[in-house]
Amino acid sequence: MATVLTVDDSPSIRQMIKVVLEPAGHNVIEAGDGAQGLAKAQAGKLDLVITDLNMPVMNGLELIRALRKLPSQVGLPIVFLTTESNDALKQEAKSAGATGWITKPFKPEQLLAVVNKLVRS
């Protein structure tokens, strides 16, 4: 069982992630923006972060860079949500320190595949 932090300003996306991951045995924590996400990451050990890039207050790129500076979360896999069309942004997120990505729109099995790929027991 892994602790997954999902950071997205859209509650429906967060809800969907939760609905997919919780039956698979994962513990899902939610955050509405980058700043909240960072605070949650500082509060406890995480196994995976799934974050949107385009968010108010602190966007995904800033969150990724901030998370990479956290000594308590070294090696934390960070996945961002992106769209097929935006290759430049994908590169930017990767160089900010993201581990992988999920292309929107995604199917539940695609999400699970990525989570299983990055989270090991």
């Binding site: 990479r68 990767k94 320190g97 993201a98 992988g100 790929k117």
Partner: peptide, 10 residues
């Protein structure tokens, strides 16, 4: 590679 959360073992 390790810093970005990827693990070659995996």
């Amino acid at each position: 590679i390790l810093r970005n959360g990827s693990n070659p073992i995996d």
